[in-house]
Amino acid sequence: MADPLLNTLESIVTNATPLVIAAIGETITERAGIVNLALDGSIVLSAMTGFVAAYSLNTALTGGGMAVATATMLAIPVGVLVAMLVGALIALLIAVASIELNQDQVAIGFVLTLLGVDLAVFLGTNYARIPGPQALPIVFPVLSQIPVAGDIFFKQSGFTYLSYALIFGAWYYLFQTRRGLALRAVGERPEAAFARGVSVNRLRYLYAGLGGALVGLAGAAYSLNIKAGWTTPPNMQGDGWIALAIVIFGGWHPFRVVLGAYLFAGLRALASVIQRTPGIEINIMVLNAVPWVLMIVTLLLVSSGAIERALLLLPRGAQKWARNILRSDPPAALGTRFDPERGS
């Protein structure tokens, strides 16, 4: 632990982990045509429930005489599962409201995000600031020996390793499998998918639930690792909105989503480094605003066609390739309802 730069990069990867997980989850959900705007509330509520579940089980097990290390090993996965369940339930509620009750996904999501935070604060009051089980970093065999990269990427917690797996898994599933094709079809042209015999709404439920479970996992990554424990006010509040923006920045593509998450985490770290750099006197608040300004700028870039125009400057062969990577159109049927009876 000598080099400040390496340490900082390692911290960036750690801090980006929940953003990566939540944004990938949301990417999957949105690819299937459902927008889960309740990310912020989901993360906060699942963080709280995940911590409380892990804490309670841990206390019960150690109280029953089990060794602390064993108890933690059992308590953390249970906490994670509970958090994932909460995240999935919230996403499914949005899906039900949209599919069965024809309610606007954005409206339901917005209500749920506010409700999630209040519910977490209300129910979590008595669990604030108590030490509970935490997922510790695991030095990854072999890979951690790689110079530089080993220090940055492979001395992380299980959550971060899971996020690596998710990045590639999500990419593979979305773009290299038949099921992924169906998933995307449901979000792009549900009528066409339906005509081909895909049961559109069943898939939408499935991927809303799956994406929501990942959002819950992100919540657990906070309360069981990165911002261990539970606090009032919830110390991860606001990150859900950033994750939502990252999905757009990422053009609904796992690789670019990850890039966005690391970029945001990096900028935050930069703000914190600048503060203690003697000679630079910038108001802290200006630094705090940087990620949000960047959020607008990136959305502007991906929405205004600036990228499309820039692509034209590339040689023809590269254009198609680059367009595939930089594609930024949302799934065409995002946020709309599909009625199988009418086939539209």
Binding site: N7, M236, Q237
Partner: peptide, 18 residues
């Protein structure tokens, strides 16, 4: 206070990192 302050978890880590 999220959105108002810098995050003390991150700041503490930064201090240690440096």
């Amino acid at each position: 206070i999220p959105g108002v302050t810098l995050d003390p978890t991150e700041e503490a880590n930064t201090l240690l990192n440096n």
